[in-house]
Design a protein around this nucleic acid. Structure first.
Lengths: 159, 159
DNA sequence: CATTTAAACATAGATATCTATATATAAGAC
DNA sequence: GTCTTATATATAGATATCTATGTTTAAATG
């Protein structure tokens, strides 16, 4: 994914679509671009999904279950099981059985996991600076509440 | 992906992150929610990626190459090759060799493809109505230009 | 015209994601 | 105390996505 730097005036293939679809298309493209940029900055082997889990656990300084993590990241439980296993394979987290309830396995970040998260955050700094330079903070602050509102509505529409 | 209807006041795990990251997290969640809602409304077997290709070609009434489609959808070429093959397997598109340049295969929507796209659009109408009812059009119009600006900047940052 | 470069596409291998379903354990009902 | 139901994960199978690389054909170069 690297060609097509020619700027499109609107999302391809959606000329005349309802405004809601146009916004969703724009959001989809932004998400994809950001994800790829983000990914390319991360240390070798570290993915956005994996980084997000480490960051979540370390920032909140907690040891959550797989279901809790799936909930927090808004992904399906098997998705989180898979991501957690990747982290476990690399030694970045340890899965600890809960003594009281043997169904539960708590995800605990290891020292290696904390180190790689720190490294990842350092790698991301230049990109964050570039973004701050290119787009005024005010624009980001302006749209956040409206995006949040859209998100809450969409969340409520889920079956 | 269906639990977690409890409303979060901010993206989990990013408390205190820079505003840019908060917006990106919100965009990521919206994208995921919208994609899933969208997907669930589509006819059995039809995916968002596949629908997008059919919709693009039929709306513009063109027969593009795989590379052109990848470009329009902003995905990598092998991704589009895969999606097009799925559509071909189902008989929704036909791949026609260009006589002048035998490297090129144009993607042509079949009658069955046009029919299934029509059906898909009909399936999506109720959701579009709900969105229009829940969120004022003005909100969508307000954020579109700002999202577009963000997208253009991100596109320019690509390696 | 032969060789090299470029373009279009295919293939391989990996991760993330979903749905559907199975398994193991805990909690409730009787 | 069984039996049933609910919860927490795991497994299976599918699509979408990426990067890296191979193959085929066209174009450019000499």
């Amino acid at each position: 994914m690297k060609e097509s730097h020619e700027q499109q005036t609107r999302p391809a293939g959606l000329e005349g679509d309802p405004i809601q679809f146009e916004v969703m298309t724009e959001i989809g493209i932004i998400n994809q671009l950001a994800d790829n940029l983000f990914q390319n900055q991360l240390p070798k082997g570290m993915t956005v999904a994996q980084f997000s889990v480490l960051n979540h656990l370390l920032r909140l300084d907690t040891q959550e279950t797989i279901s809790q993590l799936a909930n927090a990241m808004q992904v399906a439980q098997p998705t989180m099981s898979s991501t957690v296993r990747k982290l476990e394979d690399k030694g970045f987290v340890a899965l600890v059985h809960e003594p009281d309830d043997r169904r539960i396995r708590r995800v605990c970040v290891t020292a290696a996991g904390a180190a790689v998260r720190k490294e990842a955050i350092a790698s991301l700094t230049p990109m964050a600076e570039t973004l701050r330079r290119e787009i005024p903070d005010q624009l980001w602050y302006d749209i956040l509440p409206q995006l949040h509102q859209i998100r809450v509505i969409l969340d409520g529409l889920r079956p």
